[in-house]
Amino acid sequence: MRVLPSSVGAAAGAIALIVLLGSPPARTDATTPSDATNTESSAPLPKAQARFLSSTGVSEALGALRAPIEAGVGAESRADAAQILTIGIPHEFYFSRVAYSGFGGFYGRGGSWRTDYPRADEIFLSFIDRLLPNLDAYLSEFVVFLDDPDLRRFPFLYALEVGRMALRPAEIEGLRGYLLQGGFLVIDDFWGTREWANFEYEIQQVLPGYEIEDLPIDHNIFTTFYEIDEVIQVPNIGIRNCTAFSQADLSRCPTWERDGFIPMVKGIHDEKGRLMVIINWNTDLGDAWEWADDPYYPFVYSKYAYEMGVNFIVYAMSH
């Protein structure tokens, strides 16, 4: 299992950036972010723990795990992503951020998949812990790669900025198997027709022949936990600059990016009509999660984003 710990995130980010800058070979080059990270992240791990994550070596890891585990939750919650399945008892739910191959950078912070990472994930999970206290969730950020065979052990994926996504064949295969087998993917934070076109192209590589459909507001996903009666556009943190001066008169602050004026929630269903992918287009739930504690970020957006987030989780775990 290749996971990207935040402690080595900078190294991985740097590697990803190098790869992304040399975008043409990204699809075939052996030094793709996932491969590079694999080498980087697994090396410092204790042997047994690292193997627990592999599909074949689960039992070897249990020498350490079988005895009652005394490691506290506190220690665990701050642990590196790579250690999540090895320290303590594995959790039921992991908020799994997809580290996909892509092109272009984002404010020099690495691949577009890393947008808002890890702060958005951490804050989101700390709220989830309070909103869904019954959920046995791992409360820290966690990153997975689409070509990892153990991807399927995490049936909930979150991917954003997919306008810059450029999947390699192995990732396409991995994601296709994952989704058709029963996995659930949440897409967020991509704007306008150009990014849509890119995403559409990529997802059709993954799921050829599957239609992207608008999800009506009476779809179960809007009522599974919270009752949501309107899809609203959640702006990025940039709105803070406007609200700070406009005395919270939100109508004067633009919420769109590029030509993405109308927020949309779309979905892709499998052959049996079960939702596999939920697509949040022209909206940025991630920023609303990340900046929920910022006094200048409007509460109305955070509330909506968290309600949507909770609904996604509950829906994915029951439908």
Binding site: N134, L135, P155, G182
Partner: peptide
């Protein structure tokens, strides 16, 4: 509690016309 068993159990029997699994799940207190 929210659990993956729920999702996959429901999926496993969803096409079986002779089984109707009614789910009651405590999602929060």
């Amino acid at each position: 509690e929210p659990r993956w068993e729920v999702k996959f159990l429901r999926r496993a029997v969803s096409e079986d016309e002779n089984l109707q699994v009614v789910l009651l799940q405590r999602t929060a207190e």
